[in-house]
Structure formats: structure tokens, C-alpha cells
């Protein structure tokens, strides 16, 4: 096991983590401000990926595809917020779960209807394809490095938006006391639509970015959605900082666990048995991480104390 392999895997984990952050940030923002649990967030991820694949296919431009992903997901988010989600803010969590579960069914089957069951492919843009040589002689795909950079840039941008702008003040105020900011003259329903569209846009963006290294297909959103849940449970629901830390923890645990647990087991087991139990344990590692965090802090690392 060489240092190069370890660094490569750490970079892979970071890349996975920042993409999870894009998903988890929207989820946790929507929960923090509106108190809504949105299962359909994975569908918005899928909408972004399909929009990017379709537009990039027509125009040949990856950048146009990304713009389309952001726009399509944000638009879809704004529409479902105004048509369905708006009626659920005061409803019980069970109703929210059911309605957004229904939205998943509609989005998934609707997409299958339009695009068919076969996966689409989104090519990595020419300028970002191929490996780069990092200091220390490590060859690493440029596109994945770009993903890490984009993810970090979005994290910084989100922090600036929430901490440094007027809208950010309204969002934070909305988390604390929604009646009060309504009384102060902020149009709450517009603010809610905006926050929902923002979260949706982030999900769509990550769907498009990840879609270029995996295939774009129906049902791609839900595994990511559930990982994003794990992230915000670990980080604490409603906390963007928690989502960031949680996303990196989950990304690194999952990636490093998948590579190193089988090797670790091979130290004291025969190879085939180590491969079996190592990979089985690795598939469970992030959930074990979540369990440990829950035992330690039931409301997550950065969650409000009860």
C-alpha cells in the first residue's frame, strides 16, 4: 500500500464528499427554514443530470449543459414548491413524507416516459479530460479535481450568501422565527420559493457534475438522497456547517473503507474471506459512523441541543 494510493483515495473521498455536500446543503437549508423533509430532493438531482445530458447532447457544450441543469432543477423546484410543497409546511411529517414520496414516483416514471429506460451519457468536457500530475508525481483525473474545486467554491459562496447578504439575513431570521419576519414585512412565501429553488438548483448542479462520471439514469437520485440524509443526521439537521463536515466525513469513510477494509482484514484472514467480509463491512461503514455519532450526540455534531 503506497502513499500515492492513499492520497488518490483521499482525493476521491473529498470529491465524493463535496458532491454530497451540494445535495445535503439544499436539504438541510429547506429543513432549517421551512421545517420540511423533502424526499423528492433526489428527483431534482436526477432532473439536473437529465437536463445536462440532453442539452449537452444537442449543443455539444458542457457549460450550456450545466447551466441547463441549474435552470431546470431550480425551475422544477420552484414549480413543485408552489403547487404542492407550499401546502405541506404546516402538515405532519408523515404527510410530507408521503407527498414527496409521491413526487418521486411521478418524477421517476415521468422521466422514464420521456427519455426511456436506457441510461444517457454525459461526456467530460475536452478541456477537463485526462489526468494531471500533482506534486509528488501523482496522476489524478483533472475533472475530479475540478469537482472538488467547484464544490468548495459553492460552499464558500453559500456561506457568503447566508452570512453576508440581505437574503441570507432573511433566511437565518426565517429559521428562528417565521411569524416575526412575516410581521416585519418580508414576503415569506416568496422567500420559501427562493430557498426551495436554491436547494433544488444545487441538487441539479451536483446531478449534472456527477452525471459526467457515472451514467445518467432514472433512480440515480435516491441512493444519493439517502446518503445526504446520513450526512445531515451526522452534521445536525438545519446546519450548513454540519452538512459540510458530515459530507466530507461520509465521503472519506465510504471511499477509504471500500478500499482499505478488505486489505486490513487480509492482515489476519485469508484473502478471499477478507475480501468478502471487508467489502460487506465497508458497505455498512457510513451507517456505523452514523450510529456512533448518534450514540455520542443524538442531534448531530452541529445540531441544536434539546
Amino acid at each position: 500500500m503506497s502513499a500515492i494510493l492513499i492520497i488518490e483515495q483521499i482525493l476521491n473521498g473529498l470529491q465524493f464528499g463535496v458532491m454530497l455536500f451540494l445535495m445535503a446543503a439544499g436539504l438541510t437549508l429547506i429543513f432549517g427554514v421551512m421545517g420540511l423533509i423533502n424526499l423528492a430532493h433526489g428527483s431534482l438531482y436526477m432532473v439536473g443530470a437529465f437536463a445536462a445530458a440532453a442539452v449537452a447532447g444537442w449543443t455539444g457544450s458542457f457549460l450550456l449543459g450545466l447551466a441547463a441543469a441549474l435552470a431546470a432543477a431550480a425551475l422544477a423546484g420552484a414549480i413543485i414548491e408552489m403547487v404542492v410543497i407550499r401546502r405541506l409546511y404546516s402538515a405532519a411529517h408523515l404527510d410530507q413524507v408521503l407527498a414527496t414520496f409521491a413526487l418521486i414516483l411521478i418524477f421517476s416514471e415521468g422521466t422514464r416516459w420521456v427519455f426511456g429506460s436506457f441510461p444517457l451519457f454525459l461526456d467530460i468536457p475536452e478541456a477537463l479530460s485526462g489526468p494531471v500530475t500533482l506534486p509528488g508525481g501523482i496522476q489524478y483525473p483533472l475533472y475530479r479535481l475540478a469537482l472538488i474545486a467547484i464544490g468548495l467554491a459553492v460552499a464558500v459562496g453559500l456561506w457568503a450568501l447566508i452570512e453576508r447578504t440581505r437574503i441570507g439575513i432573511q433566511i437565518r431570521a426565517g429559521e428562528n422565527d417565521r411569524e416575526m419576519i412575516g410581521a416585519l414585512g418580508v414576503d415569506i412565501s416568496k422567500l420559501y420559493t427562493l430557498v426551495f429553488a436554491l436547494g433544488a438548483g444545487l441538487a441539479g448542479l451536483s446531478g449534472a457534475l456527477v452525471g459526467a462520471i457515472q451514467s445518467v439514469q432514472v433512480g440515480m437520485g435516491e441512493p444519493v438522497l439517502i446518503l445526504a440524509f446520513v450526512v445531515i443526521v451526522i452534521g445536525g439537521i438545519g446546519s450548513i456547517r454540519g452538512a459540510f463536515v458530515g459530507a466530507l466525513l461520509v465521503g472519506l469513510t465510504d471511499t477509504l473503507g471500500g478500499v482499505f477494509l478488505p486489505e486490513l482484514f487480509a492482515v489476519f484472514m485469508e484473502t478471499s474471506a477478507a475480501q468478502k467480509s471487508g467489502s460487506a463491512l465497508a458497505s455498512m461503514s457510513i451507517y456505523i459512523l452514523m450510529g456512533l455519532v448518534l450514540i455520542w450526540r443524538p442531534t448531530g455534531l452541529f445540531g441544536a441541543r434539546i
Binding site: L98, A99, A102, G110, W113
Partner: peptide, 15 residues
């Protein structure tokens, strides 16, 4: 694509 209709029925029930 019957899941689309199932989804619409569920939405109607919730709302």
C-alpha cells in the same frame, strides 16, 4: 408507467 398515477393518487390523498 402506472407509478405516475399512483403518485398522483397519493398526492390527492395527502392534500
Amino acid at each position: 408507467f402506472w407509478h405516475v398515477f399512483l403518485g398522483l393518487i397519493l398526492l390527492a390523498i395527502v392534500l
